[in-house]
């Protein structure tokens, strides 16, 4: 059995990693303030926003993909916006996948961060304030270091979840080699074409990758720091 990966498969894996990295970085930027707000607000909107963030956890990917496809299409609000900006429409492009994945992976970033921020509590931030730290200063020098285990889980989960995405990608991106064809879609193609050997190779790569991520998450998670 030839276990070496072909040029096409390597391209697919590279695209998949690029997508997952881009989405994870964007979600670190978007998800962190959202998680911070959810962890600390007393607003009556908290429940609503929290439910919206969690929606991709329970929604079938095809449903989410369908609505995103409409929104990004020429008549959809996102589509009108991107066309006005001279970017054309997003479906069947790499950035279309990125936008869709950001929505789909949002809870995997926000929920671990929210839990981590909530477990810090009010006290360390009050201490920081009595030591002359402004809110932003205290966030970066106290909240972020104390929530570091949460950041690690959130990053790994988001990355792994984006790598493993299938349904939303198929709805938004189709199957364009080098542009939108990711590993999970290519495995589907191989199976459809009864190319079990090729499917085995890529599926094996995914299996090992996912296992290693989870192993890292469960085995190396640092013990929660004891409060002083």
């Amino acid at each position: 059995m030839d276990v070496a990966l072909t040029e096409t498969e390597l391209e697919t894996i590279w695209l998949t990693l690029r997508l997952a990295t881009t989405v994870t970085l964007i979600l670190l930027g978007v998800g962190t303030p959202l998680a911070w707000w959810l962890a600390r607000t007393r607003s009556r909107w908290k429940g609503l926003i929290g439910a919206l963030v969690a929606l991709p956890l329970v929604l079938p990917p095809s449903v989410l993909g369908f609505y995103l496809l409409l929104a990004m299409g020429p008549q959809g609000p996102l589509g009108i916006l991107t066309q006005a900006l001279g970017m054309g429409t997003l479906p069947f492009t790499f950035w279309g996948l990125v936008v869709a994945s950001v929505f789909y992976s949002l809870p995997f970033m926000v929920q671990p961060l929210q839990t981590a921020f909530e477990s810090i509590g009010e006290r360390p931030l009050e201490v920081a304030a009595t030591l002359r730290a402004s809110h932003l200063d205290a966030f970066f020098t106290v909240a972020v270091p104390l929530a570091m285990p949460g950041f690690l889980s959130a990053t790994m989960l988001t990355f792994a979840h984006t790598v493993g995405e299938f349904g939303v990608i198929l709805m938004i991106g189709g199957n364009i080699p080098g542009e939108t064809r990711v590993v999970s879609v290519q495995i589907y193609d191989h199976v459809e074409a009864l190319e079990y050997l090729q499917a085995h190779r890529l599926a094996g790569v995914m299996l090992v990758f996912s296992f290693l991520v989870l192993l890292a998450l469960y085995a190396w998670r640092p013990p929660p720091p004891k409060g002083g």
């Binding site: 006290r123 201490v127 009595t130 030591l131 730290a133 402004s134 270091p145 104390l146 004891k226 002083g228």
Partner: peptide, 29 residues
């Protein structure tokens, strides 16, 4: 705001920053 008031505050539990050493805690403020 608190961070602009020239005060020192000691809490009931010492509430030291667990991610910093004792010296790091002392130097924070």
């Amino acid at each position: 705001p608190t961070y602009r008031r020239p005060l020192g505050y000691v809490f009931q539990e010492a509430s030291l920053f667990p991610h910093l050493t004792v010296l790091g805690n002392l130097q924070y403020g």
